[in-house]
Design a protein around this nucleic acid. Structure first.
Length: 270
DNA sequence: ACCGGAGCCTGTTAGC
DNA sequence: TGCTAACAGGCTCCGG
């Protein structure tokens, strides 16, 4: 759920509360949240470091700290970050806490417990395999096209592969393929040049729309302050099974592809 | 290299 | 109505 637009919306909201703060303590009540290093080592290394900047790579949140340490957080399915008064009662699903120097706390809530926290000196350890950033100015249709050669996987499945392209999840994959008019089961190497160009543009368009609408608040996604994004009101196919296609009026179809629900218009997507 | 499926979790929903 | 089972989606690991 938190995909590129949701993660980017989250860091934009957190920045004013985190930049320049000092982390004075870390608490955790769900050991599996901490991917690396061990909790005691993380607590020791992070204590007293200042927060220098927040950024994003794919669906990962990067919090650059002093002493060349980087705190990396992945929200996975149900993760949520907020900065609140340290005295505010904890939420039932709050599992990791970073106490800051101004009586506030960065809290990592995670109902499904799929989220992960990493503290590393070298972020490439975690991010090294990620594919291109879809909205980066260095990413072009020509570069995208080269990645299709010899790939026979269904295009939808490839869009979900973070090594192929970073930041896209189930929502934006389905929405981008609808905009591009491409059937999700098409083999990637069957796409001709103009289709790849169209898909490239569709990916950027739908991600920018998601950013503008501050993410899709289906199920548990909320902005850090608890309010909802409204991308869910702009869905063309996602979770619209059986309802009329906005373009042709035929019912939206749902299938399973690579174990994931996939929504598309059989008439408009070929 | 590719693919499918299990596993990690819990809240919500579909179906009997 | 009340219960159980399936489902949801991000990612990794395993076996074929």
């Amino acid at each position: 759920m938190p995909e590129l637009p949701e993660v980017e919306t989250t860091i934009r909201a957190l920045r004013p509360f985190l930049n320049g703060r000092i982390i004075i303590a870390t608490h955790n009540n769900w050991a599996n949240h901490i991917a690396t290093p061990s909790l005691p080592e993380l607590q020791r290394r992070i204590q007293g470091l200042s927060i220098q900047s927040l950024s994003r790579r794919g669906k990962y949140i990067l919090i650059q700290l002093s002493k060349n340490e980087t705190l990396i957080i992945h929200l996975r399915m149900s993760g949520h970050l907020s900065v609140v008064d340290a005295n505010k009662p904890q939420h039932r699903h709050d599992h990791t806490f970073f106490t800051l120097d101004n009586r506030t706390e960065l809290r990592f809530r995670d109902q499904r417990k799929f989220g992960k926290v990493y503290l590393v000196q070298n972020p490439a350890e975690i991010l090294g395999k990620l594919g291109p950033e879809p909205l980066d100015s260095l990413f072009t249709p020509a570069i995208f096209a080269m990645q299709f050669k010899g790939r026979r996987k269904a295009i939808k499945t490839l869009l979900l592969d973070q090594r192929f392209i970073a930041g896209i999840g189930n929502i934006y994959a389905d929405e981008a393929l609808f905009i591009a008019g491409i059937h999700p089961q098409r083999s990637a190497d069957s796409l001709v040049e103009h289709e790849i160009n169209t898909l490239f543009a569709a990916i950027q368009k739908v991600l920018r729309l998601g950013l503008k609408r501050e993410g899709a608040s289906i199920s548990s996604y909320r902005k850090p302050d608890g309010s909802r994004g409204n991308m869910q009101n702009a869905f063309t196919v996602f979770r619209r099974t059986g309802t009329p296609c906005h373009r042709c009026g035929n019912p939206i179809k749902r299938i399973k592809l690579g174990g994931r629900s996939t929504h598309f218009c059989p008439h408009c997507q070929r």
